[in-house]
């Protein structure tokens, strides 16, 4: 099942040890380290497109997917990434009742730690949960989404998709549109893309843009048409339907009219514009199917493919650090 020797040697040589034991935030990385990881992920894209996809870089390692929040895309992406690298992967989805959530987190961490996993991939509805957990275990922790804080592997795979589409990230104008307030994807992307030299705009109704977001090194726009005018990339965020409660936005139809992406609005963006979405999409709420499914402009399928390769690169790099111990 293993690849011919040159492939794996090249991967081993490029899999630089991860700079930290855990991957909790994109701010754990500097631009050079990001570039190294993107280069490594590019190799994995090649491997993933072959018939024989499996290599034994993580042979003997145990990965645990610990998801306190439902996820299909991210969880299966990490699972595939681990398996293609030859690791044993266990999926756990503890029930998180609203009262005993925290108890479950620490108790589960201590229990899992005793089973000697090598890498723990965790998603939890509370901001900072991955960081808290990383203080209680001996293995590496990867943040697969903590509350409204960060989703660093998503930002990395978005960067990989962008670099493959445009050949660069620095200098691109990226409009991140929609529910920025509740989005960990937006926070990770803003931190990563600004670090890599992109011009980032955040676009959405004032009720869905965090206070003082203009101090995050981005420009803030409340008019979608103005916000995406001349943009190279339009990244749409998922609008949770629950947001209709609590007077954040009045209705889905008004939201789509003002902040949903359709052909007409997209025409204002730069020629060659690419559209992204972290999924799952609310078609007809934040994005028109017509745009989402147009492979000439949509990177949404690429994002999913890049997700597996990017996560393989992250896991390989973390494992390289473990190997050095």
């Amino acid at each position: 099942m293993t690849l011919p020797a040159p492939g794996i040697d090249e991967i081993r040589s490029k899999a630089a040890p991860f700079p930290k034991r855990h991957f909790l935030s994109v701010t754990d990385l500097d631009p050079l380290q990001v570039t190294g990881l993107l280069d490594l992920a590019d190799l994995f894209v090649g491997i993933n497109r072959q018939r024989a996809k499996k290599i034994d870089l993580l042979k003997g390692r145990t990965l645990v997917n610990l998801f306190f929040e439902a996820s299909t895309r991210t969880q299966s992406s990490f699972e595939l990434a681990g398996k293609r690298l030859g690791a044993d992967v266990v999926n756990m989805s503890p029930r998180s009742s609203s009262i005993s959530k925290g108890e479950t987190l620490i108790d589960t961490a201590v229990t899992l730690n005793a089973m000697q996993p090598d890498i723990l991939i965790v998603r939890h509805p509370a901001s900072g949960a991955a960081s808290l957990l990383s203080q209680k275990v001996d293995c590496s922790v990867v943040n697969a989404g903590d509350g409204q804080h960060e989703h660093p592997s998503q930002a990395m795979l978005d960067a990989l998709s962008l670099r493959r589409a445009f050949g660069r990230i620095g200098g691109l104008t990226v409009a991140i549109c929609g529910d920025v307030l509740h989005s960990r994807v937006a926070r990770s992307n803003i931190a990563l893309l600004t670090m890599l030299g992109a011009n980032v705009r955040v676009v959405g109704p004032p009720t869905l843009i965090p206070t003082d977001a203009s101090r995050w090194g981005v420009s803030v726009w409340h008019d979608l048409k103005a916000g995406i005018a001349g943009a190279d990339v339009v990244m749409m965020l998922r609008l949770q339907v629950e947001r209709m409660q609590g007077a954040l936005v009045p209705s889905m139809r008004e939201y789509f009219r003002l902040w949903g992406l359709d052909r007409e609005k997209l025409a204002l963006a730069a020629p060659g514009v690419k559209v992204m979405h972290p999924g799952p999409m609310n078609r007809g709420v934040e994005i028109d199917s017509d745009v989402a499914d147009d492979l000439a402009v949509s990177l949404i399928q690429d994002q999913v493919e890049m997700g597996v390769a990017m996560r393989m690169a992250i896991l390989a790099s973390l494992a390289a650090r473990l190997d050095n111990r």
């Binding site: 900072g128 409204q148 307030l181 206070t211």
Partner: peptide, 13 residues
Amino acid sequence: TESEFSGRMGLAA
């Protein structure tokens, strides 16, 4: 407290 910092931390403020 609501601020640039708590916003970045993803904390309800």
